[in-house]
Every structure is written in C-alpha cells, then in structure tokens.
Design a binder for these strands. Structure first.
Length: 750
DNA sequence: ATCTTACCGATTTTT
DNA sequence: TCGGTAAGAT
C-alpha cells in the first residue's frame, strides 16, 4: 500500500485529488515526479484498473522511470497503464486504426533528414528557387503549420502575400508525397491522430471509455495539437491532471504554447489548483539566485520557491580568457570535487549549443575524467546505420520511396541517377511505387545493363523479404547486412574510419536482437518505431561513473550535486538570435533558470572573454543573466577578481557586436583546430599562419566591401593603423570588427 | 557510373 | 572548419 504520509501536504493533496480537472503548478525541484508517481500508485491501490490510466511524459526516459517507480510503490500493477510520450501514444493509436485514414498499418515515421530529402526533391521538381526558399525554412513553415493544425489551404489564407505561394505549393506537395509513401513525420503523428479521433467518433469514444484518468507532465511545453488531443481524450469525465511550471517552458520554438498552462483554469472551469513551492533539491543560496534571475521575466505567474534546506556555498563565477581556459577550469574543479568524494555521475556540465562540447571533452580527456556526451551525434544518425535501417523500412513498407532511393545504389551496384529518374518517371505515370517500377524494369525502357543492375537489386529485396518471414529479427538483421554487402564494403576497406562502421553495423544487429528479446511481440515494425521515437538521451542511465555533458534543454527534469553552466556570454547564452525579441529573451532566461535549478549543492558559472566558435573568434561581454544574480551570492572562481571583473558594466554596450581579433589571437589557440586528444598542447598546425603582406592599407572608411559570409557592407571605421576595420553589414548581420589582413573580404566594385 | 576537385554557405535548442 | 553540391576527369 502506498504511504501518502511520506508526502508534504500539497503533494498529498495532489495525490488524493483524483476526480475532476487538476492543475499542479510545480516549481523546480518541488517533488513533482514524486507527487505524480504517488498519485498513480494511489489510484491503483484504490482499485482503479491500470489500463484506464494514461500518463503522458515529455521524454521516453521519464516514462520509463515513472513506470518503474509506480511499480515499486504498488508492487508491479502498472504494466497495463499507458505511460509514454505524446508521440509514442499517437503512434500506438495509429498502428491500430490508421487504415481508416487511408494509410497502411506499416507506415514509416520520417525523421528530420527524411523530411529534408523530400523537401529538396520537391523544390527541384517544382522549379522553386532554393535561395529564396531554403529547405530549412520550408521545413519550419510546414512544421509550424502542422503544429497549429493548419492545412495547406488554411495556411495560405493566413499568409496571403505573394511570397507565400511557393511555401503553400511545397506544403501541399509534401503532404501528397508523404501520403503516397505511406509515411508520417513527427508532427503528423499528432495531427493524424487528431484527424482519426475527430473524424471517427467510435474510435474516439472507445479511447474515452478506456482512459478514465489522464495525467500530463511538463504541460507548459505542450503545443496546440497536443492540447487538442488532451481535450478530446479527457472527454466528458474531465479526469485530467496536468503538471507543469511556466518558468520552465523552453520549447516554444517547437510550437509549445505557454498559454496552455496559463489558461488551464479557464479551459477547465472548477479545476483544483495545487501549488508545489517547497524545493527539496537545492541549497537556499542556489535557489535565491535562480529566483532572482527568473524574477526578471514579465510573462509569468508570480511565485517564489523556498526551502528549509541549508544555505550552502556561494555560486562560483569564473571568466576565462578563452574557451580553452574555461574548459580547463571546469575540468580542474570537477577533478577536485571527485577527489572530495563526489560521484562523477553527480556532476554535469551544461551548455547552450552542442558545438560547445568538443573543447570541454578535450579538457576532460586530458585530466583522465570519464564523461558521457548526450545529444549531438546519435547512433541511428550514422550513415551506415541509416542505410541498414533504410533497407528494413523498405522491406516493411514497400511504398517508402525515400528509403528506396537511399539504398538502391548503396552499396554501389551501378544504378545511377539517370536510371532512377527513368524508374521514377514510369512510377509516376503508372501511379505506382518506385519499388514496383523497379520490379517492372523490363517495361520501363532502360538499357540492358541498367535492367540487369536493377534486377540484381529487386532479386536482393525479394530474397530478403522471404528471409524476413522465416528468421527471427536478430538473425534477419545479420542476414541483411551480409546479403546486401553493406558490411563487406567496409570490411575490405583501408580507410580507418570504416572500422567503426563495421562495429556499428554489428552493434545494430545486437540492438535488434536485444530489442526482440525484450519485446517479443513487437517485431521489426516495433523496432523501427523504437528507432524513430527513442533518442539516445533517453538511454541516459546507470552511468554513475561518468560526468554528464549535455545541452541545457536536455537537462530538463534532471538533477546533479554539482552543475557547471558554461558559455555565459551575450551572443552565446542568451544566443544572438534571441537578443532582439523580448519573448525570446525571456525564454532564454527560463533556460538559465532551468540550468541553475538542476544543481543541488554547487553551481559554477563560467564564461570566456574570447571564444572561437563557428570558425570565428568572438569577444563577448558576460551574459546579462550573471549580472541578474545578487553579488553577495557569488564568489569568484580561481583568480581573485573584484566585482568589476564581472564585466557587468559593459554588458549592454556592445550587445551582439562580434569582434574578430587579429591573427595572433587565433594562433594562440591553434585556430580552434582539434588537437590529438592525448597530445600535449604544443605544436598545432594553425591555419592562421602568417598575416599576409600589408593588406592593411586596403580598406578605408566609406569603402564598399564584400565578405564571404556576410555579403556586402560598408567600412565605417579603420582602427589601429589599418589593422582593424569596422564594417556595417546592414540589418541582417550588423556591425563587425575584423582583422584587415585575414578577413575573407574584398573591395566591392561599384 | 564513379571518382576528384573546387567552391559555397552555415552554423540552437529536440519529441 | 565542416559538409554538401556542382562541375570536370577518368
């Protein structure tokens, strides 16, 4: 029996309020997960069948944890409950009934790469100018439209200007393509589920009958489609409990709408509001600092976390000369914490962008500290793995033309672009899939060589299809990498990196075997779904021997004894793009708040005076977020530094201005080039070499110039005897200071 | 058909 | 620096 006496009064209230709508406003570290798990366990104790409970979490990892914790509390009765992310939940609903929408049960889930492939093809086909309509922006237009549940037509009505037409056409064609490929993208999982539920009342009613109780965690990060879904499913009984914290809403760029949580009370009148404001995680010093920072936001519900815990130590602030010194500082301090007895698993380094991880890794390696990086390059993103997966997808879903294109000539089997284009034309004319066109290649009008090459491919596919039915998933995966020759091409290769490709393919076989072992009913289809929906970050667990490196976004929901926030510079964090708009800046501040509140005992704030990133050197002022923390809560890091060193005074002066220093500074850090990890920082083959002969005299105030990256600009000022030039690149890039002799810039002819 | 080379452009966060 | 792509060479 679950002992609710272990909860504090509001937590207990949350656990006991089972009927009707409930809004739990749970501050960081307030035992939200605890309240939720106890609530669910309590429901099961009361005799509510687990299968009638739907619990939505933000990540798969959170889902797994929650299920385990509930099981532990009530002795393993949670199996039948649906505890999963929105996307996993939708995938499950659709696997059952998507045929009602004209798709086949074996639909493929396209990832971001697949989307881009489709979009790029369509841009070519529709003869749209890629410069004016870059694929990435097309992708975001489509994704935004879907998140707001707008059809192509509806989107066009909202955006009637002439520039929108190509977007509309692309969106429309994109939809058609995915449908004919029997594929859904991530957004579709939500949108198509909504379509299914709203167009087929019996299906909706069956789920409404099933799910008597619904819980949604991280409600502040739900988007319009997710909101609708929750509304539909909770139906008349309205036994809906949502949990969230408006101060931790950090996904608006993905369509999350903070208004969902702010207006819950209006949407579900009569709802019970419960506030969890007692923090059990951090020291009072850390909490005060975080409270002060977040108080600078205007768009928020007023609240203030408090703790009975001890005061703890002051925050440490350190401003390094460059990113290397910053990394060294982090590594040094991690090392001494570990020597004090802190477990490496209780230490995290958090950064704004994945690109910042490399220099940190180098520093940790040098100190011999074990670490794990989460996010960034994923196992299933590697080329060889994606190829193998593409074969699987095609075998499961023969309509998947994107996967077919990827592997029809991988490994090389002499099927070139022109052959595929011919097949494509035939397929279009006959209204069939590319695979079917390939099977009919006799009739397509190809040369004899091409026909035999294509036949080789289709024979391979047919024989694999037979094997797929006979063999276990694991054995089949092994057969696949052997029969296709995927692994052979790397085994015979001399390239050193191909060795790891072989390893990865072998690891993929183990992954399938392992998955099949744990999910005997799911089969290859289940495995593919798992690949699409489960990210590497979800597998962060039992790595207690390693220091964690991750982005601030992935750190949501986690906690560590010691946390290092690095790159606290204007332009990095807050990131340049957020400096313009108040709402975006507030989201960055929430991200800062999330980062700070991950720390239990020690919080380090780090930044660099000068940083090499994106192949450029930046001289950024200290992040404004640092100056929003009361001085008395901070002590400086390694070197003695008065408050002046905080650099607060100039924090706003040079807002966003990037300074590219002369070649000398670049050399000092070897131009940011990667050095051998175990090597000694000595001779590095910097690319900056020698400044060329006096180009300095080349530029004068008033000159029109053209820069490789920033385009045309006007020289506004020349400094230091012509060594530095200040150039105005207009609205998009603004003022830049660069070294006259190294900047990739020339005089522009008038 | 495939390999080689030379350019250009871009760089947030992720279910 | 990196990766993707377009044009040229074998």
């Amino acid at each position: 029996m679950t002992d609710l006496g272990l909860l504090n009064p509001p937590q207990r209230e949350a656990a006991e309020q089972i009927e009707g709508p409930v809004l739990i406003l749970a501050g960081a570290g307030s035992g939200k997960t605890r309240a939720l798990t106890f609530r669910m366990a309590h429901m099961i104790d009361m005799g509510i069948p687990a299968w009638s409970i739907l619990a939505i979490t933000f990540t798969n990892k959170a889902a797994k944890e929650m299920r385990q914790r509930v099981d532990a509390l009530c002795g393993g009765g949670a199996d039948e409950a649906w505890v999963m992310t929105f996307h996993a939940c939708c995938a499950r609903i659709l696997r059952r009934d998507i045929e009602k929408l004209g798709y086949k049960r074996e639909f493929t889930i396209y990832d971001e790469d697949d989307k881009m492939v489709v979009i790029k093809r369509l841009i070519k086909e529709l003869a749209i100018n890629e410069k004016n309509y870059p694929p990435r922006s097309v992708r975001s237009v489509i994704s935004d439209a879907k998140n707001r549940m707008l059809s192509p037509q509806e989107w066009l009505e909202e955006n009637p200007d002439a520039r929108s037409k190509p977007y509309y056409k692309l969106y429309e064609a994109y939809e058609r393509t995915l449908k004919s490929n029997n594929a859904l993208d991530f957004d579709d999982l939500l949108v198509k589920t909504l379509e299914l539920l709203s167009q087929h009342p019996p299906v909706l009613e069956s789920y409404q009958r099933k799910f008597k109780y619904i819980m949604v965690d991280e409600y502040q990060d739900t988007n319009a489609a997710q909101y609708q879904l929750v509304r539909l499913l909770s139906g008349e009984n309205r036994n809906l409990c949502v949990v969230g914290d408006d101060d931790q809403s950090i996904y608006s760029w993905r369509g999350a709408d903070i208004r969902n949580i702010l207006s819950f009370e209006n949407d579900f009148p009569g709802c019970k509001v419960i506030r969890l404001e007692e923090n059990y995680r951090s020291t009072s010093t850390i909490l005060d600092a975080a409270n002060e920072v977040i108080a600078h936001n205007r768009a928020r519900k007023a609240k203030r976390l408090w703790t009975k815990g001890e005061q703890g130590e002051r925050l440490r602030f350190f401003r390094a000369l460059d990113e290397r010194e910053e990394a060294a500082y982090v590594a040094e301090n991690i090392q001494s914490r570990i020597r004090e007895g802190v477990s490496p698993g209780e230490i995290a380094v958090l950064y704004r962008t994945n690109a910042q991880s490399r220099v940190l890794e180098e520093a940790l390696v040098r100190k011999g500290i074990r670490y794990g990086v989460y996010g960034g390059l994923k196992f299933y993103d590697r080329k060889e793995v994606k190829d193998a997966i593409a074969y699987l997808r095609l075998l499961v879903n023969p309509a998947d033309d994107v996967s077919l294109r990827r592997i029809i000539n991988e490994p090389r089997r002499a099927i070139g672009d022109s052959t595929v284009d011919t097949l494509e034309a035939y397929a279009r004319q006959e209204g069939i899939s590319l695979l079917n066109a390939a099977l009919a290649c006799d009739r397509v009008g190809l040369g004899a060589r091409a026909v035999s090459a294509v036949k080789g491919f289709t024979n391979l596919i047919t024989s694999l299809l037979m094997k797929m039915m006979e063999l276990s998933p694991g054995d089949f995966m092994q057969a696949l990498i052997d029969d296709t020759g995927l692994i052979r091409q790397y085994e015979n290769s001399k390239e050193p990196e191909d060795e790891s490709r072989v390893e990865n393919l072998t690891e993929l076989v183990s992954a399938v075997t392992e998955y099949d072992h744990q999910n005997p009913e799911a089969g290859i289809l289940g495995f593919l779904e798992n690949v699409a929906l489960v990210t590497d970050t979800d597998r962060l667990e039992e790595k207690s021997e390693m220091v964690t490196l991750m982005t601030l976004h992935s750190a949501k929901g986690l906690e560590f004894e010691a946390v290092f926030l690095v790159g606290l510079e204007e332009g990095i964090f807050p990131i340049t793009r957020a400096l313009m708009e108040e709402t975006q800046l507030e989201e960055e501040r929430r991200l800062m708040y999330v980062g700070m509140t991950r720390a239990k005992k020690w919080l380090y704030l780090c930044c660099a005076k000068s940083r090499f990133l994106f192949n450029q050197r930046f001289d950024n002022p200290v992040s404004r977020f640092v100056s929003e923390i009361p001085r008395e809560l901070i002590s400086s890091g390694r070197q003695a530094a008065g408050p002046a060193r905080l650099g607060v005074a100039n924090a706003n002066q040079r807002l966003g201005a990037k300074v590219v220093t002369p070649a000398g500074a670049m050399q000092r850090t070897g131009g940011g080039a990667k050095m051998p990890l175990e090597g000694i920082p000595g001779v590095s083959k910097g690319f900056g070499a020698r400044p060329q002969a006096q180009r300095s005299a080349l530029f004068h105030a008033g000159d029109r110039v053209r820069h490789r990256s920033f385009g045309y600009g006007t020289v506004t000022e020349v400094r230091q005897e012509g060594k530095l030039v200040v150039v105005d690149f207009g609205e998009r890039f603004g003022l830049k200071v660069m070294a006259a002799d190294t900047a990739p810039m020339t005089l522009a002819e008038e």
